[in-house]
């Protein structure tokens, strides 16, 4: 028996919106640690890792480890039927091939349940080694989304370069070129507006903007985004999920041939 209950159901809706365009089908792993997922996009260029810790749920019961294969577009369709203020419960009984999503309105006057078929998904689970990153940027997530959106009107790739001066996002295309430099700015009224750059070594990497833009679908989840970079390693773009976990996107760099 697996059951989780999340009073702030909108979080789960936002989580699904953040991954459904990147990944078609994925295995959700349910364990005593929490509700997690690791999946690559169909081109095997990006990887998303989600963790929602069991302590973050109002109720969490997992009698034995369970893997639930779901089509994320279908799951998102079902979660779209939950109101933003609804409490969401996810239930799966042992030995069944369905999962039930239950939505309760805050005043308890409307209760819906949606049953979805599970799938057998043959997915590869990758071991992600702990790494010391040469540069870590923390910045407002909305600002990062704006930069990715603006640069994708200029080119297909972004060069992210961290130096003592700050972090530079550059794109180049048929119509011209663009450079956006963000400097460290810790002296702001609100901590969520800060840009903090921790640099051990200068680092410059090139990435496909299509994926970066897809990652920014997670912007409604967190005021800040953390971008961790090292030479010739995938970048990690991390959004925290309201004290209960994270969504981390890993993106392999483009390299000069």
């Amino acid at each position: 028996m697996f059951e989780l209950r999340l009073v702030q159901g909108s979080l789960l809706k936002k989580v699904l919106e953040s991954i459904k365009d990147l990944v078609n089908d994925a295995n959700f792993d349910c364990s005593s640690t929490g509700f997690s997922l690791q999946a690559m996009d169909s081109s095997h260029v990006a990887l998303v890792a989600l963790l929602l810790r069991s302590e973050g749920f109002e109720h969490y019961r997992c009698d034995r480890n369970l893997t639930m294969g779901m089509n994320l577009a279908n799951m998102a369709k079902m979660l779209k039927c939950a109101g933003n203020d609804d409490i969401i419960t996810i239930k799966a009984d042992d030995g069944t091939d369905t999962v039930t999503f239950m939505f309760e309105s805050p005043s308890q006057d409307k209760i819906s349940d949606f049953e979805m078929k599970l799938m057998d998904i043959d997915s590869e689970h990758l071991g992600i080694p702990e790494a010391e990153y040469e540069a870590i940027i923390r910045m407002p997530s909305a600002e990062f989304a704006r930069i990715c959106r603006d640069l994708s009107s200029i080119g297909d790739t972004v060069v992210i370069s961290v130096t003592k001066e700050g972090v530079r996002f550059s794109a180049r295309g048929d119509i011209g070129a663009a450079n956006i430099v963000c400097r460290q700015n810790a002296t702001v009224d609100k901590p969520e507006d800060a840009t903090i750059i921790e640099m051990q070594e200068p680092v410059t990497l090139t990435f496909a903007l299509r994926y970066m833009n897809s990652f920014t679908k997670a912007t409604p989840l967190a005021e800040q985004v953390t971008i961790s970079m090292s030479s010739d390693l995938p970048v990690v773009v991390e959004y925290k999920v309201a004290g209960m976990g994270y969504i981390r996107y890993y993106l392999a760099p483009k390299i000069e041939e």
């Binding site: 095997h44 590869e124 689970h125 990758l126 992600i128 790739t157 496909a208 392999a252 483009k254 390299i255």
Partner: peptide
């Protein structure tokens, strides 16, 4: 021209 690397070139299969 740039070559797009794959994610599994960096992370080992479990």
């Amino acid at each position: 021209p740039c070559l797009q690397r794959k994610i599994f070139e960096y992370f080992n299969s479990n």
